[in-house]
């Protein structure tokens, strides 16, 4: 029982990431009708915003310490962070320590800009083209972004730690009467889960309770009619692309301490997120979120030793198996809307 509970908890944070990416994918698909294979790359750019902020705050100046030597026997060059020099070691270190949460300030505007640039500069030329063309061009774009990031940041993962107060784990099991250490959960993953819930809630609230959101929803349901009413729906959809990019970006930035950012992390998430979208139902926002969490949890349970011993390899195929079963029984996905990708 405790093992299953543990994996459910575990699946929630992975599910949070799936849900956030799938939410953005669905937003773009629902509004612009574009299948965006570069969405994983947006998640990766977000993670690298956290890396960039970490580096920015860690900018240092060099002093020579003649009493110590480097590996070649020359006097050691000692690096001191500017923030330490400006604010003193205690405050300076604390600023560097909080680089990941602080990076959200950088991530949101950068991602909105990247989103606008992507949509205006490339993707809008493919609105009327077949989905296959859209997939090809966005996949190509993803590869280009990946290679650019690799050129500047290298191929190895870059450690991007969470603030020290969130390191370590919380003994969740003791709270509900289990033995100590039975169900532990890292603090940062708890933060990530709460953060994802807030972002998802904010996106839904934005769409549900603002006039802008209402127009977008109307546009998603019937683009032509909204256009006939004299509303410039394209402009609003471009803004939604920016928002979707920002959602993927903040999801990536906050994920950086969980999985050290590397240039390939977007691709790792992309395929799974598409499965999430398909299982949830193309074009359905609640479906994307629900499927994200569902598949995250199922992936966790399938990774249990007892389950792998019973069905070897199940951990690697569970998500796809679920996708097959769902598509056979509910061809539009769990909460799919009629008419989406059916013409």
């Amino acid at each position: 029982m405790d093992a299953i509970l543990l994996q459910i908890l575990n699946g929630l944070d992975k599910g949070s990431a799936y849900a956030l990416i799938a939410l953005g994918l669905t937003l773009i698909f629902g509004t612009l009708g574009v299948v965006n294979f570069a969405h994983g790359a947006l998640f990766m750019i977000g993670a690298f915003c956290a890396v960039a902020m970490n580096r920015l705050l860690s900018l240092s100046f060099e002093t020579i310490d003649p009493t110590r030597q480097d590996f070649l026997g020359n006097p050691l060059k000692v690096q001191t962070h500017y923030v330490e020099a400006w604010f003193g070691p205690e405050i300076g270190n604390a600023i560097v320590d909080w680089a990941v949460p602080v990076s959200l300030l950088l991530t949101v505007p950068i991602m909105v800009l990247v989103g606008f640039a992507m949509e205006r500069g490339l993707i809008r030329f493919f609105y009327k083209r077949p989905h296959a063309d859209q997939i090809l061009v966005t996949f190509g774009l993803a590869i280009v972004i990946q290679e650019v990031i690799k050129y500047y940041f290298g191929a190895n993962p870059i450690p991007t730690p969470a603030p020290s107060m969130f390191r370590g784990s919380f003994d969740f099991g003791v709270l509900i009467g289990f033995e100590p250490n039975a169900i532990i959960y890292p603090y940062w993953r708890l933060v990530y889960f709460c953060f994802a819930a807030v972002v998802i809630g904010a996106v839904f609230a934005f769409l549900q309770f603002t006039t802008f959101g209402m127009v977008v929803r109307a546009g998603m349901a019937d683009r032509e009619t909204v256009g006939l009413l004299g509303i410039d729906i394209d402009k609003r959809f471009t803004v939604m692309f920016g928002i979707a990019a920002a959602v993927a970006g903040v999801a990536g930035a906050m994920y950086a301490p969980i999985n050290s950012p590397n240039y390939h992390m977007g691709m790792d998430f992309l395929v799974l997120s598409f499965v999430v979208v398909v299982v949830g139902g193309m074009g359905s926002l609640p479906g994307a979120v629900a499927a994200g969490f569902l598949l995250g949890v199922l992936e966790g349970i399938a990774s249990m030793k007892e389950v792998i011993d019973l069905i070897p390899g199940i951990n690697q195929v569970i998500i796809y198996l679920v996708a097959i079963v769902v598509l056979l029984t509910r061809p539009r996905g769990l909460m799919g809307r009629k008419g989406v990708m059916e013409d």
Partner: peptide
Amino acid sequence: VATVKTPVGAGDFSSYIAPVLNS
């Protein structure tokens, strides 16, 4: 106690690490 194979390039190993203490 146990030997568990993990897929290459799994990215997130939490579901494999979480049960370790309990084992």
